[in-house]
Design a protein around this nucleic acid. Structure first.
Lengths: 345, 345
DNA sequence: TGTTAGCACTCCTCGATATAGAGTGCTAAC
DNA sequence: GTTAGCACTCTATATCGAGGAGTGCTAACA
């Protein structure tokens, strides 16, 4: 059987209506809704075909039809094609340049959640892939050194370390110069034993301090990894969709969003399958995260330049408003580009 | 009517049973449960009295009894008295000293949530009440200054600012000394116009930089306030308690925990009414947060020294295991004291 | 040959009704 | 003061039937 124009029109009409209402849609509704001027009987025949072809299904014999995952997939592919060129002008998202990346990300998540009425997640940059830009040691109290580490993209980490020895201002200055010249431009991953032992040699009597500093660098980075830089917002939006809000489902889903570990799998998968324009849609079972199999997830990869890149995800019911979500994300990416890339930091 | 020993025993038995089961408890259950060796009929009479006195209530005529808020209050007051002296040894909570306060707080919240099976919240320190300890400017690229601000308790804030002029190493050193000597020991609130203008005078040609730096200090602090330093964990634990997990209620409660604004009111109230040992219990309507009126909230104030203090809260159903929560919190406070206070930082 | 009207059929939804069971309150006896 | 007994109340659960939405099929129509 072939998916001719009329079938496509009817399929789209079914899906659109279902997206709006969340109720199974009957033949009479479609017969009125479309401008096809067909009777409900004809529609019924077509629907029967569409069901046989796997695009729609019936919750029970005498109910209307709802889209199957395959149906959603067809629909999404369609609108992704149609809108490919079109640069949608959604209402301004009001992005302000802020220097602290985490804050920006948190706000973005909030923005997306409140704009779409779905749940939003956003992953922060992976620090260990970024290059070191600047290290600064300074004496606070005696025996206490303040360590400030700046990596690409002006991400700043800092800690206070206790040192056993006292250290003169002069030595401190030398150490700073040494550290900077040795480590600048390296990523955290590239700071291996070789680099470290060479550094310690050069540091001479202060090799112990170097050790402590490098340990702290490593620890700070590690803490960050552990502390999964994933922000979520609007998790409770899922209660707006009855099909997601029954006890067990809601609990699972919210748990996934709260714990965040599983979201990493999602992000990993997004990065693996990296689509053309960076926007991807997972419908139902397509998701790599089992607890989201009743949801759809739309993801995008953002890149603020200077190594700050990550993944954004919108999580909602399968009957989410794909057009809106897709255009919101596209618009967001455009604005991020405009705000962060072109303007030199 | 008087609340004699037998009534107390029965009341406690009712509450204890209800805490475990979550179902209204009948007279026969109590007659078997206690070692009072009384028939269900006698218990019924006593229950009737207890209801008249307001300690228990019936969901409907032919159901068993459940504790009223007043009943819970009595119960909690009792165990708080009984356990006052007793330093309970719950299983070790495994607190490790970590230097980054936010991480510690996040972990604490997780620890509490998983230990109790309720939701946990924990508020971070309010930076503007803390004294400035150290300010350091350093040149990163030309035109870019790295500003590091350390306040009491080794809380570190930092930003990168763009400056219009270039500045020599010598001038930078002078500026650092100037800033530190002028601002050290002041709280953010104490840095008023008077201090600022005096500073700018002394800075001479670099008064513009001083301005920028102070603005950034203010902005960093403000961002922190906005970004409400409240961490939550285990919000989805509420699904373990049917009386909290129906759609509307769960949504409201989770929303409150996610948005966090309302939690501030709770914290404010805790600080206002500051109880003896710092532990407080809000039962049902006693809570200052309307959305938690079906819950009980147990709060404690922690103090890690050096101005790092805040509030911890455990949020669960009214039939929460008060004994466990109270002793867990007491134990936690003890461990925090041992880990942070005695050991000099 | 495609479209449509008509109709029987299916299955869900919703309200009404009946029933079982848990628990109470009261009374009377111990 | 305590207890056994019993009638009574109210909920929870199941059952039934009516109403209605929607289908699938057939036969007639253009």
């Amino acid at each position: 059987m072939e998916l001719d124009d009329r079938k496509v029109t009817i399929l789209k009409a079914i899906i659109k209506t279902y997206l709006e209402t969340g109720e199974p849609v009957g033949s009479r509704t479609i017969s009125k809704y479309t401008d096809l001027k067909l009777s409900s009987a004809t529609i019924r025949n077509e629907m029967s075909d569409l069901e046989e072809m796997g695009y729609i299904q019936q919750p029970h014999t005498s109910a209307g039809r709802i889209p199957s995952d395959q149906g959603y997939r067809f629909y999404v592919d369609q609108i992704m094609q149609e809108k490919e060129q079109e640069v949608t002008e959604v209402k301004e998202l009001m992005i302000q340049r802020v220097d602290r990346v985490e804050l920006v990300l948190k706000r973005l998540a909030q923005l997306l959640a409140s704009n779409t009425n779905y749940a939003a997640m956003i992953s922060g940059p992976q620090y260990h892939q970024n290059k070191l830009k600047f290290i600064q040691l300074s004496q606070m109290d005696s025996g206490q050194l303040l360590v400030v580490i700046v990596v690409e993209g002006n991400l700043i980490k800092n800690t206070v370390i206790n040192i056993p020895e006292t250290i003169t201002q002069k030595d401190l200055l030398d150490l700073n110069i040494l550290l900077n010249s040795a480590l600048n431009g390296l990523t955290i991953q590239e700071i291996n034993l070789d680099v470290i032992s060479r550094l310690k040699e050069q540091a001479g009597s202060h090799s112990q301090v170097v050790d402590l500093v490098l340990n702290e660098v490593a620890a700070a980075i590690r803490a960050d990894e552990e502390d999964l830089q994933i922000y979520t917002s609007g998790a409770t939006n899922i209660f707006k969709y009855p099909e997601l809000s029954d006890g067990a489902r809601a609990s699972e889903l919210l748990g996934t969003l709260e714990k965040k570990e599983m979201l990493q799998e999602l992000i990993a998968d997004v990065n693996d399958t990296e689509a053309g324009n960076g926007i991807q849609v997972y419908i139902g079972d397509e998701t790599p995260v089992q607890t989201m199999k009743d949801c759809s997830v739309v993801t995008a990869n953002y890149d603020l330049g200077e190594g700050i890149r990550g993944t954004i995800g919108i999580i909602g019911p399968k009957r989410m408003d794909y057009e809106k979500v897709l255009s919101t994300l596209k618009n967001l990416m455009k604005q991020l580009d405009a705000t962060y890339k072109n303007e030199e930091r």
